[in-house]
Design a binder for these strands. Structure first.
Lengths: 130, 130
DNA sequence: CTACCTGCAAATTGTTTGCTGTGTC
DNA sequence: GACACAGCAAACAATTTGCAGGTAG
């Protein structure tokens, strides 16, 4: 039941993510992949992104505009989101969330598994447009 | 055009958020508010949450389960999300994202406006259930 | 009195799912 | 050859929007 198959579709979807710097939405991935497999279905794209996400093969990013974005890079790295155009970029600096003191009472009652850091602002494109 | 009115509905929605510790979704806010104004419409709740969010009166939180949550506390504080039950809690510790070095080339090309820190794991309820 | 706002319902948007045939391992 | 997976379309869930009447300032 957990036996993954590397179908042509899955391979190309993963490839699309790998090539893209832009953390595309399912929709964008669909558009791209249709260049290679014109009759692929949107459902297949969603299904594969979900499966690969659950496998930990890719990362899923929540956004304020209600569309999930996907990232090929599974290393824990911070994202920067442009508040103007919505673009999401990787921040190429080693940054991690401050560690939670395990001796604190609040922390000791919970099990902390992971953390994420995000920055927002204006990207270089949107700055030069303004 | 940016002239806000404090209608009964808006007041009660804000009140509901203020009372709630649980970072409710629009749906939950709707349920609560119906206790006071039985014939309020869900559209009104959405409209008001959106307006108040845009005014900076409240905070909107993205979640992996595809429902936005809202927070009365607009101070920049970290959230903890339980991966089991989806509950979102405020972390009562002074924690901020690491500052970005403005001298770095990457940073200098952008305008950083804000940052958020999030932690994920298991809440105390879900630990004791396991 | 003037727009902003409400309730209602219909429309959109993003995503999921049931079905039936297919291709991977 | 079994069983995960594809395509297709219909179903869903969260949120948005058009309209006509109501109300705060």
């Amino acid at each position: 039941m957990d036996n993954l198959r590397m179908t042509t579709q899955r391979k190309i979807i993963l490839e699309a993510l790998k090539k893209s710097q832009s953390h595309p939405s399912a929709d964008r991935v669909y558009e791209f992949v249709r260049g290679e497999i014109p009759n692929i279905s949107l459902g297949t794209v969603y299904r594969n992104l979900e499966i690969m996400y659950r496998q930990g093969m890719i990362v899923r990013i929540e956004t304020p505009d209600g569309q999930k974005r996907f990232d090929y890079d599974t290393s824990n790295h911070p994202h920067f989101r442009c508040e103007e155009c919505g673009k999401i970029e990787d921040i190429p600096l080693p940054l991690t969330a401050p560690p939670l003191d395990p001796r604190s009472e609040w922390v000791s009652k919970r099990k902390i598994l992971s953390s994420t850091v995000n920055y927002q602002g204006l990207c270089s494109d949107c700055i030069s447009k303004a």
